[in-house]
């Protein structure tokens, strides 16, 4: 068989030289990909555990909303209520949300420190919200009902609980995703202070 003879190396020509560079392109691409893989493996955030979808509304005016009261005897929430000249917190919570229970003491602590906390109850029934506040404490000023998450979507919030820091003009200045743990309290207070 003729094709079993080892191929003789052709003489070097200018075209062959140029071709040689092209031949290294696959390796170059592979190295770039390896770099991205390593980056993703050690610094990436697409894994579900690490990922948090941040609201792009930080820096924007609170969107237009007019929410009915979530519990009887407590006012609902309108956009105008969030632009009163004073910075405040807007807490997105739900009675069926377990981490919301975890953050309840921290919210109480913030309220005791003189912070006004407005709230939006996501997909909740009045009796459930009432029971939740009875059991885990009630740090809230106004509570608006958001039965179909429409206000939550307007805020760019992707879960419960989330807490937004709103300045006196009704501009969102900070978003805290997930429950507020004791170690997060100073950071929230700081954001409120900066919003002044």
């Amino acid at each position: 068989m003729t094709d079993e003879a080892p191929m003789a190396a052709p003489t070097e020509t200018p075209t062959a030289k140029k071709k040689h560079l092209v031949l290294w392109v696959p390796l170059a691409f592979a190295v770039i990909f390896f770099g991205f893989f390593a980056y993703a493996l050690y610094f990436g955030t697409d894994s579900p555990q690490q990922r948090a979808i941040e609201s792009q509304m930080v820096g924007e005016q609170v969107p237009e909303m007019d929410l009915d009261p979530a519990v009887p005897g407590r006012p609902g929430l309108r956009t105008a209520d969030l632009a009163t000249g004073e910075p405040k917190l807007l807490n997105v919570f739900a009675s069926w949300c377990v981490p919301c229970i975890t953050e309840a003491p921290q919210l109480m602590q913030l309220q005791n420190a003189g912070v006004t906390i407005e709230a939006i109850a996501i997909r909740d029934r009045p009796q459930d919200v009432y029971g939740f506040l009875q059991r885990w404490g009630d740090p809230f000023n106004r509570i608006g009902a958001d039965p179909n998450s429409q206000a939550q979507l307007a805020l760019g919030s992707s879960g419960v609980p989330e807490t937004f820091v709103i300045d006196g003009n009704g501009v969102i200045v900070h978003q805290h995703i997930g429950e507020i743990r004791p170690e997060n309290v100073p950071e929230i207070l700081n954001a409120l202070e900066n919003a002044r």
């Binding site: 191929m7 071709k19 040689h20 592979a30 893989f37 390593a38």
Partner: peptide, 28 residues
């Protein structure tokens, strides 16, 4: 395990492509 597979990836793929760059120019 990701690290391990990535290491093998770099070794085998990188090695093969380097060999390719070196040798394939001499393949008629």
């Amino acid at each position: 395990r990701g690290t391990f597979i990535l290491a093998l990836l770099v070794l085998y793929i990188g090695g093969a492509l380097a060999l390719y760059g070196l040798r394939v120019g001499t393949v008629r």
